[in-house]
Design a protein around this nucleic acid. Structure first.
Lengths: 91, 91
DNA sequence: TCCTTATATTCCAAAAGTGGAATATTATAT
DNA sequence: ATATAATATTCCACTTTTGGAATATAAGGA
């Protein structure tokens, strides 16, 4: 297991891309199926959104759950939601 | 001025590097002079720390203040401190 | 003026990230 | 078995980041 600094750096790195941030913000109000996210963010390619979700999951920011053909993603840390909302108030 | 998503991505990008994170964490308990940070993080080169501070400042995460030969840096957003502390509790 | 201390900047090769296009996988229904 | 829908993966040229080494700048003191 990596040390804490590396783990945190990985979290921030996953959040450091505009597309991944938009994907994440889609999930601030709760779990969604990949297809819903694709539908909300039509401006991006399906593959791009899929890759974004996976990177966020690998960083520990999202968790997923499968049900038939669908995969549902949701936030795995309350911290993140609070921080994004705090930033949104201050920018 | 860029849009909010870009601004947030830039903040996360600035935080996405282990050295910059360590530098930032040095400042969680209050303003410090660059020389104090260099002294605390002896394992890194002076130039590396200087560049880290500047990148954090450019992202809007730190502010600085000059006094004679010294430059003092401090956090410019309460959000950040809360988030890092929340992460530290959860990792 | 010259020296010293504190901090910032430039240069650069290696490493990592980016996103589009095509393709693969997996699960379900017919 | 085959088709279809949902999601993931691979390939790849391009851009960006990284951090060390050397150098520059700015301020104060002798």
């Amino acid at each position: 297991m990596e040390n804490k600094i590396e783990t945190k750096a990985k979290i921030f790195k996953a959040l450091s891309n505009p597309v991944r941030l938009e994907v994440l913000e889609c999930l601030l109000d709760g779990e969604k199926c990949v297809c819903e996210i694709i539908d909300k963010l039509k401006k991006y390619e399906q593959a791009h959104i899929s890759k974004s979700l996976i990177k966020l999951k690998e960083a520990g920011i999202l968790k997923d759950r499968k049900n038939g053909l669908n995969v549902y993603y949701s936030l795995s840390m309350e911290c993140i939601k609070n921080f994004i909302e705090c930033l949104n108030l201050n920018l």
